[in-house]
Nucleic acid binder design. Sequence first.
RNA 1: CGGAGCGUAGCUCAGCCUGGCUAGAGCACUUGCUUUGGGAGCAAGACGUCGCAGGUUCAAAUCCUGUCGCUCCGACCA
Length: 576
Amino acid sequence: MKWSQTLIPTLREAPADAEILSHKLLLRAGLARKLAGGVYTFLPMGLRALRKVEQIVREEMDRAGALEVLMPALQPSDIWRQSGRYETAADVLFKIKDSGDREWVLSATAEEVITTLTAGEINSYRQLPKNFYQISVKFRDEIRPRFGLMRAREFIMKDAYSFDTDDEAAQKTYQKMYDAYARIFARCGLKALAVEADTGVIGGKFSHEFMVPAETGENEVVFCEKCGYAANLEKAVSAAATAAGKAGAAIDKFATPGVATIAALARPPFNVPAEQQIKTLVYIANDKPIIILMRGDDQLNEAKLAGKIGSTVFRAATAGEIFAALGAHPGSLGAVKGTARGAFAGAVLADERLRGAAGMTTGANEDGFHLRNVSMERDVAVSQWADLRTVKAGEPCKNCGAAVQIRRAIEVGHVFKLGVKYSEKFNALYLDEAGNRKLAVMGCYGIGVTRTLQAVIEHCNDKDGIIWPISVAPYEVCITPLEVDAGSEVMKTAEALHAGLLERGVDVILDDRDERPGVKFKDTDLVGFPIRAAIGGKSLARGEVEIKPRGGAMQTAKTGAALETIVQLVKSRAQG
RNA sequence: CGGAGCGUAGCUCAGCCUGGCUAGAGCACUUGCUUUGGGAGCAAGACGUCGCAGGUUCAAAUCCUGUCGCUCCGACCA
């Protein structure tokens, strides 16, 4: 390929709407352009890199025995109703109507489609296991698309769905996918960490996310360096000590005028440490208020709450709703028996960390008053205990007791063990050896292909631009002649090298633009080609070509040996 | 969905507060000349419904209202 014939619209300055580095580089290097919020066009360089990521994914999925298929992006809404996700995933589904007013859902994922398919096509244990995958465009009506390809409304995902005869076989498939994922991300030049994860709206038994550590990541990962425990903050648990306190004393109501926060009560003149306070949260779930009790210094983890109540459809109550339920305003709320002066009749969920706590202080459900010497066992009618708190850095690891750390990360892949959730809904049954009808056991496995691409950029760059791992680079080699007059020795040498590399199967681009050397070097660095071969009058006079790995040291090769040197360099980098 | 900010040339932005001649700069683009090893110089040129709609005014990029779009923060801590 000749540079002048493709389109690589590099930008000296980043567009103002790009915030994070990888997003800026995506635009500056001319890889993609935004059409609308969270919707991008891939330009030639971006598409080439994307295709290489896809190819790595494809090779590893094939190697793991998965079968590539292609499912429709346009899905009848009926199947989403059948799975129940028409409601539970309503906020992320794009819905459209055809001219006959029939409603369709744009594919956000494909459990419904694949399970419908297998229900019809798979009838016997002899046909199992099967694992189907596709690499296709997905649509999600993100509340807030951001950071370029990181969180987009339309993106490319590899999604796979496995069907096994039983749990044990499904576990093996899960492990196979887990291993394939580790290879995929390693081949893309990423250090991805597998962490325990929340199953979210997809549901299922358990799951792991593959996370690439990055300051700009949208997820937080709790991990223990000592024993290797790693989990998404939404799921993580620690061995944090339970609440303590002296029991026995009778409840004492005291005036706290103007005190409306945990912090205010912790200050003089009250001096009640946050860990001796009970925080009372009011949520509306299924249109009814529920109370959630946390230790004062703990934070509610909404993902855990969602898991506990089995729905993501809940929200914090408004001040008005709270007053109606408890007869007091935020700041003086509590759950001590008999104190609610409103119409509250809902559930009281308490965080496990409060179990057995005594000598606690909490709101009196009367504005300007709190209660002290509160004992959870004696004074509070808890309807359900649950782990609802968010782990904090430095708490002891639940496995080994060492202090856990928290880092931000980008989620590039997610593997789920689904069980029979969808098999049941869609009657994905097979006959076993004994002729019994059984439900296929499913797993599902996703990789955000476009997000992975941007994660590579976020991970591999310097002040001059992108530094592509050779495995996903748009071109492996860029030849940079410093004179481009047809027939000049420099250009003839460059063209010969270009032709030779093409013949040897190297992905190569020839920068034949009549630009000054500085412009060419800057652009080549910005786009991030792994190897640059520069040919100028000076080097050619010495009979040499200058070969410079991006981000590495320059070396020279005699013109006659340049081809072989570059081929070897490409090979060694591809293996490394 | 709540809050904040921003929409002026392909990109980065100035001008707006305090309304007033023909709406500007840098980069990019076109042409010519000079230059040519890390984003060159000179000259000439082209490029704008100032997001859109309405209003106020003798006069609106500028003030007001609405609307659309984009970005960021939040959407637990009572």
